[in-house]
Amino acid sequence: MRLSKLAALAGLPLTANAQKAETAEVRRVCAANRISELLSEAAPTTLLVTALANRHLAHVAELTESPAICLAGGVAPDAALLEAAGARGLVLLTSPEDPARTADRLYRALQSEGGT
């Protein structure tokens, strides 16, 4: 599913590189608050959901080619993450709910087109 469509279905705002969401494809959602867990689950079509909000997330996305990160729990990206996301074309979304509820919301939206 196109990330822009997924974000709209889940009601989550795009906060960085929104234009990239028109072409990014998401088939899977992974929620975790540990870098190692995100690393081991991320893939090129995985949307990462986390309550972290630092520049190391951008490294995770870069290394695993994940197209986007949803910052859950109402956290705001720090300046370093915004800069890194901009440099790497990483899409950022935000959610006021915690990672588990956010993942559930995204999962339900994805299910409408057969994602996991």
Partner: peptide, 15 residues
């Protein structure tokens, strides 16, 4: 605090 220290670093490398 940055999200490290899950105790999965070396196991991840092994995998």
């Amino acid at each position: 605090a940055l999200g490290f220290g899950a105790g999965m670093g070396l196991p991840n490398i092994r995998r």
